[in-house]
């Protein structure tokens, strides 16, 4: 399939259009929240939250016997939030450090999630079919209504980021200084974590619990390579997230049997690779080039013996 055909499909094919739009929106939201996760050194928290969301998804289904994305999304969000609360209290009240607490919570919640999932799959209830797509995501199941709920919730999350722009910047850079000035740092922490939970929950249907953290980390890591201004990092991460979403949707629609979630994640990872290699100031290749030129310039100069070279 050639590029023109793909573009044609993107505009006129309902399914592809819906999938691409949904993936783009979730790419934007997770890209923006990922920047804060990265700057606060909480990138892996995203991984824990997304894995921990699985039992929430299955429980929401078991309780309501509905697979309406909004219902499952609320379940995912609550479980994700509970997981962060569990992690915080483990770190505060025991001597277990953050990385271990993270690993513990991730595996316990995910284990419970898998257990519940296999239980639900054995139910004599046909409605459970498709719950397992939340493991690796299935963007093709997105319908227009889902895109609207993703866009609505995502826009609300982004609005909060804009409103508390300077506060979030300050607590990400220097939390203690913020606290010394009387900023409600704990509240701001909680808001930012909640937004991250929302971003993750929004992406689960398309990308799945296993790969979702890549959608937080990859666009942010790629964006950081290109600029030193926070606003630009955020805007670039949003663009990279959108690009990965649309690109992944297009590629998977063109190939046979390429599932969308992993393709989106691979496109995002490709963006990271390109950024790591080629970004002008922080990229590896420009750095090698500078070093090479520098060495040659030195080699051309005779050793200075107090005389002008």
């Amino acid at each position: 399939m050639d590029l023109l055909q793909l573009l044609h499909n993107l505009i006129f094919d309902y399914t592809l259009r819906t999938v691409a739009a949904g993936s783009a929106v979730l790419g934007v939201v997770s890209g923006v929240l990922g920047v804060y996760a990265m700057l606060r050194r909480q990138s892996l928290l995203g991984d824990a939250i997304s894995h921990a969301a699985l039992p929430g998804v299955v429980l929401a289904f078991l309780l309501t016997r509905s697979k309406a994305p909004l219902v499952l999304l609320i379940g995912a969000g609550l479980a994700g939030w509970l997981a962060t609360a569990a992690m915080t209290s483990i770190i505060r009240s025991t001597r277990i450090k953050q990385d271990s607490a993270l690993g513990l919570v991730l595996s316990v919640f995910f284990g419970v999630g898998i257990l519940l999932l296999t239980f639900a799959q054995r139910l004599p209830d046909a409605r459970q079919a498709g719950l397992d797509t939340y493991l690796f995501g299935q963007a093709a199941t997105l319908v227009e209504r889902d895109v609207f709920s993703i866009a609505g919730l995502g826009a609300a999350a982004l609005l909060v980021i804009v409103l508390f722009w300077k506060e979030f910047k300050l607590i990400s850079f220097d939390r203690e200084f913020a606290a010394s000035m009387g900023l409600a740092v704990n509240l701001l922490d909680a808001i930012l974590t909640t937004l991250m939970v929302i971003a993750i929950a929004l992406g689960l249907q398309a990308v799945g619990v296993v790969l979702m953290s890549a959608m937080l980390i990859a666009p942010a890591a790629a964006a950081r390579q290109w600029t030193d201004r926070l606003a630009w990092v955020v805007l670039l991460a949003a663009s990279f997230g959108a690009l990965a979403g649309v690109g992944g949707a297009l590629i998977s629609s063109a190939g046979q049997g390429l599932s969308t979630g992993p393709t989106i994640v691979l496109v995002a990872s490709l963006l990271v690779l390109i950024s790591l290699l080629f970004a002008p100031a922080r990229g590896l290749l420009p750095a090698w080039l500078r070093q090479f030129r520098h060495r040659r310039a030195l080699a051309l100069q005779p050793p200075a013996n107090g005389e002008e070279p």
Binding site: L39, L170, F173, D174, E176, F177, W232
Partner: peptide, 26 residues
């Protein structure tokens, strides 16, 4: 308050003027 300068990540994406203005946020 002037914290120890090692208490923050100096690779944070921002510039000098912006950091100084943070003193006014409160």
């Amino acid at each position: 308050y002037v914290p120890q300068r090692g208490s923050v990540d100096w690779d944070f994406p921002t510039n000098v003027l912006d950091v100084v203005m943070m003193g006014r946020y409160g």
